[in-house]
Simulated assay, not measured.
Amino acid sequence: MIIDHLDVLAAAQRIAGQVRPVALAPMDPGALGAATGVFALELMQHTGSFKARGALNFVGAHLDAGTLPEAGIVIASGGNAGMANAWAARAHGVLATVFVPESAPAVKVARLRTLGAEVHQVGSEYAEALDAAQRFAAETGALASHAYDNPLIAAGAGTLIEEIVAARIDVDTVVVAVGGGGLFSGVAAAAHPHGIRVVAVEPRGAQALHAALAAGEVVDVPVASVAADSLGARRTSEMALSLAQSDGVRSVLVTDEAIVAARRHLWDERRLVVEHGAAAALAALESRAYVPEPGETVAVVLCGANTDPSDLVR
């Protein structure tokens, strides 16, 4: 299923007053040459990432439709989607079960349990956790949510664009990191009617969307990146691929070195602690994988902060 702007507007109405409106911070003058930019600080969202938007829309829509079973919801996640779903479920008195890879950062696993989720660590990659979650749903009747490949999840994520446009009507381009494609799908669906371009940024070692665009179809890719805990999907969604093939979308790749440098820059210059996946968006600009035109206004989405900051302190 492909979402459109109406789906995003419906999600915005459903979650209104329950999420934190995105804060925008101007980038330093000259940071983008003759262009200007703002950071969209979605790392300050509930549960520390944009995922809260989609999770709340997912749970709310199923409650409205009377389709939430007593077994609650189940999701596989690298951590952020699981936290968001656990938070949204708890807010509505719904049970949440989360499957994460054994490699999931301890800070994310601990937070999941604090949010009241039943947590299972399975396998070394997201795909293995997903298989286990699907088996759990079949055995228990729990409603399967998804980290990115669900229209309600993606539409909820897209509400970010409506808030950016309301605050800065002059934004021409949104730069966003891509894992499986949920945030990208929502952003692309919401951005197009506003005439806003979207730059989809992936690590070279986790390029599910970029590879799908090259192949003309969804394909499996190997995953080996410093940002794999949040951008490590082995394949993108059909929805993300379809939206990426539309006008106004550009797909770029960045190295792990550029991601690490961007994350360090955000800490040294802004005292912002972000996860590597969030830093990928800024890395596209700092490494010149994407170069804005003179006069262009760019919004860089810093999408999450669920990370161990100990390696930033020196």
Rank of each mutant, 00 (worst) to 15 (best):
A299Q: 05
F184Y: 10
L24I: 10
A96R: 09
Y148S: 01
R135E: 15
A299F: 06
A84W: 02
P309Y: 07
L272D: 03
T114P: 01
M239K: 02
F136M: 04
A138F: 06
G182S: 06
V100D: 03
H146M: 05
D220P: 03
A167M: 13
R235P: 01
A215Y: 10
A23C: 07
V254D: 02
A227V: 03
D308G: 15
V273H: 08
A244P: 08
A167R: 13
P69W: 09
A299V: 13
A258C: 10
I169P: 14
N306F: 10
E293R: 12
H120I: 05
A228L: 09
G181K: 03
A261T: 15
G205Q: 05
L183R: 12
P101S: 07
S251P: 03
D64W: 06
V300G: 00
N80K: 11
P292G: 05
M44Q: 14
A96Y: 04
A227C: 07
P21H: 11
V38E: 15
R271I: 08
H92P: 02
A211Q: 14
G93C: 08
A261P: 10
L243K: 03
V298S: 05
G60P: 08
E202Q: 14
V178F: 08
L43Y: 13
R90A: 15
R53Y: 11
D172K: 05
V221M: 09
S237P: 00
V260W: 01
G33T: 11
A177F: 00
V107N: 13
A200S: 08
L241V: 11
A88N: 09
I3A: 13
G17Q: 13
T67F: 09
V107A: 14
T307H: 06
A157W: 04
H46E: 15
L285K: 08
I164M: 10
V109L: 11
I3L: 15
A208I: 11
V249P: 10
D268V: 13
A261M: 10
A189Y: 06
A289W: 01
A23Y: 00
A16S: 15
A227E: 01
